[in-house]
Simulated scan of single mutants.
Amino acid sequence: MNTMDALKFSFLDGTLLLTRSELPQINDPNDILVKVSFAGICGTDLHILAGEYPCRKSTEISLGHEISGVIVEVGQDVIHFEEGDHVAIDPNSGCKRCAFCHAGKPHYCKLGCTTNTIGIYVDGGWAQYLVCPEEQVYKLNPPITLEQAVLAEPISCMVHGWELISPITVGAKILLMGGGVAGALWACTLHLQGHRDVMISEPIQSRLDQLRKLNTGFKMITPEQLRKNAYDDPGSYAFDVVIDCSGSPPAIEQGISLLNFGGKYCQYGVAPPNSRIQINPFDVFWKEMKILGSKINPYCFKKALSLIEAMGNRYLNYKVLGIKTFQLSQYNEAIETLKQGKILKAVFKIN
């Protein structure tokens, strides 16, 4: 077989089409050919499809940067992998030459992560096969399944945010903004770590209903309810930690305004690049706020796999998380179902 099914997105005219494409070949001795098993649809992918995210503009590629699969071929210089290994793929890599990479901060690299991210700048997982460098491939140890491992990339990004905002003292009053799958994964991790005083703000009621299935006991609220309650009883709605998973400017403004004295705010959700917010700089000074951004997943992928193993089926059950699988041919249905908020996440089940 020399061809495969692949979803191709054109950066020139914004179309997404299922095509028959040539099977990718190993040209670098350090590359690996992976047969894709699962590939997620991320909020970033929706931003790309809407033309709201900086990415490759000159041609068409297969999107999809959340990937798990099985190795079918390895380059002659590959050391740690062999045919048949179950793996997850980290889509991000620095150039390994610049000052940021040498300082251990590849996510700041202007040559690497901004030009070679799998599924954003080069062909990704919305296809039956892809080729990627050995250094970006991670072997799965039992009992981690391929179904769980497709969540390794978003969980690795969450691990980075967790490390930036830590320590989060048990007993801290925490607000999660956004009840999509990012908010759900943050909720799972907070619960696993022993946090119980957590509130989740989400405007779509069906998402709040889905989050209740996680059985964390966390409080669920809409932004309007949150705004009213905070006005009526500001003392009870001052949070030690606020984590935005929505990328929504109004939610971001609301979250920052609700920080307690000494509070920490993590901007985890991806907002449109041209969006703007207004905050009160006096409050930043007066409350000694700490406002932190969290960008992708530097050196967090292995930690994410360990976290997946700790979470197990208790937290990573697709039905409980609101994740639905689709075939590549169902891409329109998958994207629309996700946009409509009927599910928290869509994942392509391939091959």
Rank of each mutant, 00 (worst) to 15 (best):
E163Y: 12
L151Q: 00
I204C: 03
A182V: 13
P223L: 11
G125T: 02
G194M: 09
A184N: 05
N141R: 11
P154M: 09
P154T: 05
M220G: 01
L185Y: 08
L130M: 15
L176P: 04
L164G: 01
D123A: 07
A152S: 14
V170C: 07
Y138H: 15
K219E: 15
I165F: 11
G161H: 09
E134F: 13
L185M: 14
R196N: 13
H160M: 01
G183Y: 05
I174D: 04
K228Y: 10
G179Y: 11
E153H: 03
A127W: 08
N215W: 00
A172H: 09
Y129F: 15
P203T: 08
G125N: 02
P203C: 10
Q148W: 12
E134T: 06
G124N: 07
R212L: 13
L140H: 02
N215D: 15
G124Q: 07
P143T: 11
C132V: 14
Y231S: 14
G171T: 04
Q210P: 02
S201D: 07
Q210G: 09
W186L: 10
M199A: 12
Q136K: 07
P142M: 00
P203E: 11
L226M: 15
K139Q: 14
L226F: 11
M158Q: 09
V122H: 07
H191I: 03
K173M: 11
I221Y: 00
I204A: 12
Y231K: 14
Q136W: 05
K139W: 10
A187V: 02
L176Q: 06
V150T: 00
T216W: 09
T189W: 14
M220I: 03
L226C: 07
G171A: 05
G124D: 06
G217C: 07
P167E: 10
A182R: 01
S166H: 10
G194H: 08
M177C: 14
D123N: 15
V137E: 03
Y129P: 05
Y129L: 13
S166R: 04
L146F: 12
G161K: 05
W186S: 01
R227H: 09
T145C: 01
A187C: 05
K219F: 10
E147L: 13
Q210A: 15
V150E: 00
E147P: 00
I174S: 05
L214Y: 02
Q136C: 06
Q205K: 13
H195D: 03
E224F: 04
P154Q: 07
I200K: 01
N215I: 05
A172M: 07
E134S: 13
Q128H: 06
G178M: 11
E135C: 08
N141L: 13
G125W: 04
L176R: 08
R212V: 14
Q148F: 12
